[in-house]
Write a protein that binds this DNA or RNA. Sequence first.
DNA 1: CTAATCTACAACCAAATGGTTGTAGATCAA
DNA 2: TTGATCTACAACCATTTGGTTGTAGATTAG
Lengths: 110, 110
Amino acid sequence: MVVDQVSNAELDRLFQALADATRRDIVARVLTDEYSVSELAAEYAMSFAAVQKHVAVLERASLVAKEKRGREQMVRIHLDGLRRARRLLDDYEEIWQQRVARIDDILAEG
Amino acid sequence: MVVDQVSNAELDRLFQALADATRRDIVARVLTDEYSVSELAAEYAMSFAAVQKHVAVLERASLVAKEKRGREQMVRIHLDGLRRARRLLDDYEEIWQQRVARIDDILAEG
DNA sequence: CTAATCTACAACCAAATGGTTGTAGATCAA
DNA sequence: TTGATCTACAACCATTTGGTTGTAGATTAG
């Protein structure tokens, strides 16, 4: 159960990071391509600093990692975060399935 | 791709709802048992109104549904939300896997 | 060397969030 | 009927969030 393995603060940061359309878009982009922070910034109708903050939020959530290359900072996906979040939701659905199975058993007996 | 099917506002509400430990705990509880709002409230070191608000957030995110029973309001899980959130993360990982496969192909050719 | 580019970070602001208390309407129990 | 219980919701408050502008340090290009 992820619920027990991953700290609440970590999950807070993870889901909080995913709870913004711009940040989800950044994740989707860096999943397939490499972007520097300013290349990302060019994609959105907001300031460079705003995008920089979004990237920082994703970084703190372990969804993304930065790597310095010359004067640029390249943003890459960091799968750990994504996997931890997905695992929690998988666990939830598994708990649900166990409950469904339990109810089926009871009905089969009755 | 969920990214296209589910509105950004919906995903915002979903992940935002999951970005709080109390709300994740409520989800975990109602996955296996039935709780009224006040039964839930009794579990946490905060006011009834605070828990009521948390339930409302989960409800708006389609993670939970309320059903009136007498003077009580029973809180049940509503799988739709959970599945939509999980699907997005699955999509992300699939995109990643495709990228990995693509890179493998390139390496195989080279 | 100088100028342009990329990044980091501080200070500020409006809006949203997560909590509180208080009031009031339904429903149930005695 | 009366009192207790369950819920809803408003008003309020402190903190966080998502945006802005401005300043300054590295690094690259000419």
